[in-house]
Design a protein around this nucleic acid. Structure first.
Lengths: 115, 115
DNA sequence: AAGATGCTTAGCCGTTTGGCTAACTGATTT
DNA sequence: AAATCAGTTAGCCAAACGGCTAAGCATCTT
């Protein structure tokens, strides 16, 4: 389940904006139409819609239009590439610590054996 | 341990670039000087340094200069705000599912009681 | 003392981002 | 049929981004 090269870019970039994160937080509590979503934000609708589109582009959100209203909902598994990257990063780091630990252990053994 | 408002912004934005993520991946295996780090990247040094500075600005990385070389190292706990946000987000989502679950359970009970 | 090395600063450039207004389309309501 | 409502498109704008070159400034090295 490998991810396309730029996917992490668009994901992280999409999350790097407070408005967009707020939208996601709101959507975690359930779907909403665009104007419902836009309500709390002091922003013209076209600007706001841009954010929704960006979230959609990153695959974090899905939208569907029926009649004249468009409803937006969270895409459940969309965060996993991000989580995976963070986890890998942590694994790398811990791997490094492990190796440092090994090294120190070996060092102490050598000293104990008499130099 | 609350985080300043814009901290998540700078963090996510810093992670939203492949060069910068690659730098972090490299650094997880241990500190390095700027030119060592820059080696694999087909990029002029000033451009590259810009990325390091951005990582430093986000608090993901620490640098120190001795003599004419500057060494860069990972800041261990720096990812935690990001992880926290993702966890909260997931908690929200699951909370919502729980409530949905409750709702369905209640619904079925009512039906079982005979409408 | 001279030269090479390792950044660093300054300044330019094109693209993207995040905001706006004005005007338009299509559905619903009255 | 007219008015309203929910998005949408188009176009503008300033600031930020990501890249570059050229030149400067300290160390080391020779």
């Amino acid at each position: 389940m490998n991810l396309s090269p730029g996917q992490l870019d668009t994901l992280f970039q999409a999350l790097g904006d407070p408005t967009r994160r707020a939208i996601l937080e709101r959507l975690a509590r359930g779907p909403a139409t665009v104007t419902e979503l836009a309500g709390p934000f002091d922003m013209a609708l076209p600007s706001f819609l841009g954010h929704v589109r960006r979230l959609e582009g990153a695959g974090l959100v899905e939208t569907s239009k029926q009649g004249r209203t468009r409803t937006v909902k969270l895409v459940p598994g969309a965060f996993t590439p991000v989580r995976s990257w963070l986890d890998e990063q942590r694994a790398l780091w811990e791997g490094r610590l492990d190796r440092l630990d090994d090294y120190l252990t070996r060092l102490m053994k050598e000293r104990a054996d008499g130099s």
